[in-house]
Design a protein around this nucleic acid. Structure first.
Lengths: 136, 136
DNA sequence: GCTTGACCTGGAGCGCACTCCAACCCTTAT
DNA sequence: ATAAGGGTTGGAGTGCGCTCCAGGTCAAGC
């Protein structure tokens, strides 16, 4: 599979693919007679996993580290598991933060609805005589 | 309250505070006789809300837009509510993506545990005669 | 044989969100 | 009076993660 097709399948731009290769996230694939990159299915699967790490907020440096461990082979199994466990904890934390903040957001939305109906006044002005002006 | 104290209370660096002022996220506070910024409690509350938007992945541009609406006063109430609703939906999506990816992560961790105990073989090599080398 | 279009390289540029710096000014304590 | 420890400014620099570009090569179809 040439880079164009690989790009479509992975959802990454051609430039990004070459960039990932340059920085070492994916191995340089073999080339065809004309010097063009020939990607295979395995690389796609690997890349998709990388993208999931990415989607959960793992930065390039850590993905690089993970990729480097993977290249070391079976010896790095435990190290990789530990990395993933750490990351999983971080993701869990991120999720709970998001949940918490989302409830703040929804409370604010409710407040706004009430204010729109004139049923509430901006809390930042609740102590004032006139509750007309709002600032939240 | 001077910028140093405000910085500590908000958890933002002094530089970031001045940066936020420069780009318009927070209003220029009044100055004391010596030209030093004097922050008040309200700004702190507002800033904390901004930080929550930030924590849920709202970029500076959108926070700027929200800040601009807020400056318009009560007229922008509905617009702001709509912004928050959109954002809340985005956050919900983000949460569900994270949850999904987290389960992928945990499956992988389990697989690694099994591989470490020799109870499993790398799926990418399951079709091979020798399941010794692994690549996941 | 020529055009078209996808690929190649190295390197520059970009947008975000800060972060740091030099050079200066005030206030306060000694 | 002076030195320390805040504060001020404008502007440059940083790190991340791409993204774009010029100028070139190659393969396949008409």
């Amino acid at each position: 599979m040439l880079i164009g097709e690989f790009s479509e399948r992975s959802g990454l731009s051609v430039d990004t693919l070459r960039y990932y290769e340059k920085i070492g996230l994916i191995d340089p694939p073999p080339r065809d007679s004309g010097g063009r990159r020939q990607y295979d299915q395995k690389t796609l699967i690997w890349l998709e996993f990388l993208l999931q790490l990415n989607a959960t907020g793992m930065g390039i440096k850590d993905r690089l580290r993970y990729a480097a461990l993977r290249k070391e082979g079976a010896d790095s199994l435990t190290a990789r598991r530990e990395m993933l466990e750490l990351h999983s904890t971080a993701v869990a934390e991120k999720i709970s933060n998001l949940l918490e903040t989302q409830s703040v957001l929804n409370e604010k939305i409710d407040l706004y609805r009430k204010m729109e109906r004139g049923e509430a006044v901006d809390p930042l002005f609740a102590h004032c005589a006139s509750g007309k002006k709002e600032i939240l």
